[in-house]
Design a protein around this nucleic acid. Structure first.
Lengths: 345, 345
DNA sequence: CGGAAAGATGCAATCGTTGTCACACGTGGA
DNA sequence: TCCACGTGTGACAACGATTGCATCTTTCCG
């Protein structure tokens, strides 16, 4: 039952409202009303037009509609790194919610690069996006967008200087729980691996690490805090160096990538978990539950965060003046075999 | 440094070409030529217009352009399941290539549902997408799109009845290598876990499994072939059942999800890899290299497949008549500790 | 010096859809 | 009878950018 070649080859100027109006013997206005369901149309005309639309294979032209209505059903989404499962899951959650609401998602992976982020924002503006969801790396994008009246939702971290909705998790609390867990197990030299950013997420995790120490009366040793660039090629070398020089008995890796690096280093150095070193990660990804021992981790509801962000955006699209919402979700500490009490010397 | 509220509140009818033309004392035509770089414009007018555009914060209106030019720089991408790392990586590869070419990606996760897939196709048509990249679940979408003159590239599997470009890997060869590896190790009862689809990918993998058996003179036992629905909730139960009833000495799991299920079952049953059972997966994902022993796997260049698909699409966009391309990439067998010689009884 | 070619510009039409407006019906109540 | 109102319809003007065409100027060559 293949399509006849002739059909496929016809240059086939696209079918427009005017075409189906002609076929049904009405005007384009009536056709528009019939198909969009707005305004008066007789039942008779409605069925004739619908039938004509089906028969001719009418496909509405979104560009024309967007141009006329000055708004689209497209939502721009910019994440830092699609290759990282965390952002992929975030995107998956956003996509699902948007699709169910019959919105489309333009997805960009901006590498946390300010220039690219701003370029994305400009593109979203050019497309008259109904809104934008972003894991921000800079304040400029949100400013630009909101100045043009486009709703912005920040996810995972907050950065904007303009008021906008946001979905984050309680990073400080997550880090506090992870660190407290280690301190309660008797560890006194807990290394912190944290991304070298100025994001609220990393700042919160650092803060949680510090406040847990304060609460347990353990002084923070700056030498145990390792700030690592996102895609620094020598991350593992640096981690190994700290392990050698500072002899921490536990490591708190403040994101899934750093946890993976730490795990690789430990394996390479033949340090056993949890006998030689304890390890806690942040953001539960599949391998952490599968390796032996499993990695104790601060889990975040990643897909859920994406869904919430999309919901906030849709809400604001419907009611631009609804009160600003900042949702803070709770992380949970998942205990696995990678953490144990500090062995008595 | 914050944006004055007045700025943010102005309803601010958007700045149009006509506005900057007026500001620079030219006509809109000249402004269009100056900014798009097509046609004659004096150097003098060009700089005046550019300056005016900057000053007024001009953002071109993509909808208007698309409407007039009858084509956009948007590419529709429909994958089966964004939550699966395979598809996420595919999308990441596509996105990167498109972004570098200054195209935008509309991403949809269609759950391999024919209805949704068709709905996506219609949306892409409505947006006048320059092309569509799809991991097809049904032939209808590609037919519809190509009938309307939209270029389609199939990735991972081929299904379309209309001629279109495609990027796949040599599934049969990958499966042949995996199976041959097991047979060469002396295994005679190799279970196959394969998705229950009518896709070329799974058919190829089954074929490779069969031909490897033929080549080694080992008869295929149909009872060892387990076809599993994509999101069947009882996958692991079924796998456990086959393990119990058929006592295979090795398992070939023909995608990353099935490998994960198999691995879970083996762990739950306390069967040791590779002493009790050997396991080979298909599609290398991070956990496979991290668990102990690592999982022997047929690796596919997932991100690269995405990039190639996007390249094919861009090529066809530039030259709609270029010869049809079907790229078949090579999988590679990565040997790890999950496979070993069949112990002599 | 004549005239062709290249350079520079603006006018007006166009893309497809929507929304406003005016108008033409009936119907029913005052 | 007349007016108000609810329906139903079509003409027409946007929305903003692009582009073919006509027009005018400048340049350059024979």
């Amino acid at each position: 039952m293949s399509i006849p070649a002739s059909r496929a080859l016809t240059p086939a100027r696209q079918v427009t409202l005017a075409d189906i109006a002609r076929a049904a013997g009405t005007s384009a206005s009536t056709a528009s009303r019939a198909l969009s369901g707005r305004g008066y149309v007789s039942e008779d005309a409605r069925v004739r037009l619908r039938e004509a639309a089906d028969r001719l294979g009418y496909v509405p032209n979104h560009s024309a509609r967007t141009l006329k209505q000055q708004t689209s059903r497209v939502v721009g989404v910019a994440v830092s790194d699609l290759g990282n499962q965390f952002y992929a899951n975030l995107a998956a959650g956003i996509e699902q919610t948007l699709r169910e609401a019959e919105y489309q998602m333009i997805l960009v992976s901006d590498n946390s690069d300010e220039t690219q982020e701003l370029a994305c924002a400009r593109t979203f503006l050019a497309m008259r996006a109904a809104g934008v969801i972003i894991t921000p790396a800079d304040r400029a994008a949100a400013s630009l967008l909101s100045r043009h009246g486009v709703a912005v939702v920040e996810v995972d971290r907050r950065l904007a200087e303009v008021p906008c909705d946001a979905v984050v998790i309680d990073n400080e609390r997550g880090a506090w729980e992870a660190t407290s867990h280690l301190l309660a197990l008797g560890h006194r030299r807990v290394a912190l691996l944290v991304a070298d950013t100025d994001w609220t997420s990393d700042a919160g995790r650092l803060q949680g690490y510090v406040s847990a120490h304060a609460e347990h009366g353990v002084p923070v040793d700056e030498n145990l805090i390792l700030r690592l660039g996102f895609h620094a090629p020598d991350s593992e070398v640096q981690i190994a160096a700290v392990l050698g020089a500072e002899k921490p008995s536990a490591i708190f890796a403040a994101n899934n990538l750093l946890a993976e690096h730490a795990w690789n280093v430990l394996r390479r150095l033949r340090l056993r978990l949890p006998d030689d070193v304890s390890l806690v990660g942040f953001d539960d990804v599949p391998w952490m539950a599968m390796v032996d021992p499993g990695i104790t981790v601060v889990g975040q509801p990643t897909v859920e965060m994406g869904k919430r962000a999309a919901q906030l955006l849709l809400r604001r699209t419907l009611d631009p003046d609804c009160p600003r919402a900042v949702e803070t979700l709770d992380p949970i500490l998942i205990l696995r075999g990678s953490t144990a009490a500090l062995p008595q010397p």
